[in-house]
Amino acid sequence: MSGGATLTRFLPDEAATLAWGGEWAKQLSAPLTVYLEGGLGAGKTTFTRGLLRGLGHTGTVKSPTYAIVESYALPQFALHHFDLYRFTSPEEWEDAGLDELFADNSVRLIEWPQQGGGFVPPADLTVSLSRDGSGRSCAVTAHTPQGRKILESWLN
Rank of each mutant, 00 (worst) to 15 (best):
Glu70Asn: 12
Leu84Ile: 07
Gly41Gln: 12
Gly50Met: 04
Ser128Met: 09
Leu7Asn: 01
Glu70Gln: 11
Leu79Asp: 11
Phe82Leu: 06
Gly50Glu: 06
Thr33Cys: 11
Leu109Pro: 08
Leu11Gly: 00
Leu51Asn: 01
Thr6Tyr: 07
Thr88Ile: 13
Trp93Phe: 14
Lys26Ser: 15
Leu125Met: 02
Thr6Met: 14
Val61Lys: 03
Pro64Asn: 05
Phe119Trp: 14
Asp13Lys: 06
Glu23Gly: 12
Ser89Phe: 09
Trp154Tyr: 15
Gly22Val: 03
Ala139Asp: 06
Thr144Leu: 00
Arg148Pro: 00
Leu74Phe: 09
Asn156Glu: 15
Lys26Gly: 13
Met1Val: 12
Phe47Asn: 02
Gly116Pro: 02
Arg9Lys: 09
Pro121Trp: 11
Ala42Cys: 07
Glu94Trp: 01
Leu18Lys: 09
Thr60Phe: 07
Gly3Cys: 13
Asp99Met: 09
Val69Pro: 12
Ala15Phe: 03
Leu98Val: 00
Thr48Leu: 00
Ala139Pro: 06
Pro113Trp: 08
Ala103Met: 13
Leu129Cys: 07
Tyr72Phe: 11
Ser89Asp: 15
Ala103Ser: 14
Tyr72Pro: 01
Asp124Leu: 01
Pro12Thr: 03
Pro121Leu: 08
Arg148Ile: 10
Leu55Gly: 11
Glu23Trp: 11
Asp132Phe: 10
Arg9Gln: 11
Thr65Ala: 10
Arg136Lys: 09
Arg9Leu: 03
Ala25His: 04
Ser29Glu: 14
Lys26Glu: 15
Asp95Met: 15
Thr33Leu: 01
Gly43His: 02
Ala5Ser: 14
Tyr85Lys: 10
Gly147Ala: 05
Leu125Pro: 10
Gly116Thr: 06
Glu37Val: 10
Pro113Leu: 06
Thr8His: 08
Ala15Glu: 12
His80Ile: 01
Gly38Thr: 04
Arg53His: 10
Leu129Val: 05
Arg148Thr: 08
Arg108Asp: 05
Lys44Asp: 08
Met1Leu: 14
Asn156Arg: 15
Leu7Val: 11
Pro121Arg: 02
Glu100Pro: 06
Ala42Gln: 04
Pro122Arg: 13
His80Phe: 05
Trp93Val: 02
Gln115Leu: 07
Glu92Gly: 09
Gln114Phe: 04
Gln114Ala: 15
Leu28Tyr: 09
Phe119Tyr: 15
Leu129Gln: 01
His81Ala: 00
Gly21Gln: 13
Thr60Ala: 13
Glu91Arg: 11
Ala67Cys: 13
Gly56Gln: 12
His143Cys: 06
Leu52Cys: 02
Thr45Asp: 01
Ile150Leu: 12
Thr33Pro: 01
Pro75Phe: 08
Leu7Trp: 15
Ser29Asn: 11
Leu28Ile: 07
Gly135Phe: 00
Gln146Thr: 13
Glu111Asp: 10
